[in-house]
């Protein structure tokens, strides 16, 4: 059995919206193991983004426990969460969130400069096949290229876990596949545990495990006996 990266027990998140309370998560239990690729599947409002945000140390839980390598994130201070994000987690966002004033190379360097054991930005860009675009600014790159820069940035610190929030959500099918191939390659070659959240069920086929969320609870967990390579995905 692989070692556990995340252990989630009875995770509850309630958003207090003044007069109404929104139950985003209603007692989620799950684990994530080293080297694993998990797809979190669910429609809008199912709680998948909330779960990812809490795993990533961006949000706090109302109740329950999230442990990362045995350390409770749910009890970490703001400073500890910042350090956790800085040294252990890589993020990929739906809208890339690159720094517009920095080139591709510099957008990666922005992370490697503050990380403990980073890879060279060149190497990270090579892994996503963008070596020849390293001096371009975000405004000079296509959406797919920007997202691959974001992946290079996320993996460049050699994180133990990669959290991807709708990484293909803003992309067309062809560029979406290129991005998923990059994520798949990182997962295989670096063994980085990867969580991808999506509402696109077709992407699930590339995961080791698929966790379906509905109304803030886990509705279903599927283990893919035979993963498909991203190039074979269709939607």
């Amino acid at each position: 059995m692989n070692k556990t990266v995340f252990s989630v027990q009875n995770l509850t998140k309630i958003y207090d919206m003044g007069e109404v309370q929104v139950h985003a998560l209603r007692g989620v239990d799950m684990e994530l193991y080293e080297g694993e690729m998990v797809v979190l599947l669910g429609p809008s409002g199912s709680g998948k983004s909330t779960l990812l945000n809490i795993l990533g140390g961006l949000d706090t839980a109302t109740d329950g426990i999230v442990s990362y390598r045995g350390k409770e994130l749910t009890r970490a201070t703001d400073q500890e969460l910042t350090e956790y994000r800085r040294y252990h987690v890589g993020f990929v966002f739906q809208f890339y969130n690159l720094i517009p004033s920095l080139t591709a190379w510099e957008n990666v360097a922005v992370v490697t400069e503050i990380a403990d054991h980073p890879m060279a930005p060149e190497k990270a860009l090579a892994m996503v096949d963008l070596s020849d675009r390293k001096d371009h600014f975000p405004s000079q790159l296509s959406g797919g290229e920007q997202q691959r820069v974001a992946i290079a940035r996320a993996i460049s610190k050699n994180p133990e876990v990669l959290l991807c929030d709708e990484p293909t959500g803003a992309l067309d099918f062809k560029t979406g596949i290129l991005v998923l191939e990059a994520l798949d390659r990182v997962n295989r070659e670096l063994g980085t545990a990867t969580v991808i959240i999506t509402h696109n069920a077709d992407i699930a086929a590339m995961a080791d495990r698929v966790i379906s969320l509905r109304n803030g609870i886990i509705a279903d967990v599927n283990v893919n006996e035979k993963k498909k390579p991203p190039s074979e995905l269709r939607w």
Partner: peptide, 16 residues
């Protein structure tokens, strides 16, 4: 604010 928040998410401290 978007850019700065992104940096915060990437692990930059408030001071940074």
């Amino acid at each position: 604010s978007r850019e700065l928040s992104s940096l915060r998410v990437l692990g930059y401290t408030r001071g940074e």
